[in-house]
Each structure stands twice: as C-alpha cells, then as structure tokens.
C-alpha cells in the first residue's frame, strides 16, 4: 500500500537519511527504501519527534507534522524531503 508515488528519490537523499537513522535504529532492522518507521524500526511518537528534528537540521528545512500520516517508509520520507527542498528553492 506504500508503493512509491511518482519519481524515486535520489540515492543521495536516501543515503543521508540512512546515515541519520543509524543512531535511531534500535531494532537493528535493515535500512532500505521500503523500511517502515513504525513496524520495522518500532518508532514511537517521541522518537519520531527527535528524528524529524535531526532531519530538519540536516537538510535545513521545515518538515510539518501535517505530512507525517503519509510517511510510512524511508522512501516516503525521502520523497517528502526532496519536495520540501525543491519548494524552498522557488
């Protein structure tokens, strides 16, 4: 149900997210584009908060809470991050 919508994110974006996720990966799940935050990484709301804050600082963007319901996998987040970065350049 979380099939990628539209373009695949760039490998650079994914690599940057994988790097950030290393310190948040308590379950030792494999980090792949399809890895799910809730089911595979066992993220609860507090971890999500801290993780998103780190992503915001790494990409120098604002990630609104509003988009989180649509973000299930690392790929979803990478796509969302690229969209925000592109909008910021406009």
């Amino acid at each position: 149900m979380n099939a990628p919508t539209g373009a695949e994110p760039s490998p650079d974006t994914l690599a940057a997210l994988f790097e950030i996720l290393k310190s948040f990966n308590k379950t030792g799940a494999e980090l792949a584009p399809g890895t799910r935050f809730s089911e595979d990484l066992n993220f609860d709301s507090l971890v999500v908060m801290e993780f998103i804050a780190v992503v915001e600082d790494a990409f120098d963007i604002s990630v609104p809470l509003n988009i989180l319901p649509d973000v299930a996998t690392i790929r979803d987040l990478a796509v969302a991050v690229e969209k925000i970065v592109a909008e910021d350049k406009l």
Binding site: M49, I52, A53, E56, D57, D60, I61, S62, V63, P64, L65, N66
Partner: peptide, 18 residues
C-alpha cells in the same frame, strides 16, 4: 505544524529563521 525541541529557544529561533 512545526515542532521545536522542548524549552529550547535556540531551536525555535532556527526553525523561525527557516
């Protein structure tokens, strides 16, 4: 909706600057 780190005015500043 944007969250900032609890009781962290510098973190808020960073987010407002963006």
């Amino acid at each position: 909706i944007i969250r900032f780190r609890h009781n962290d005015a510098a973190d808020l500043d960073k987010r407002l600057a963006r």
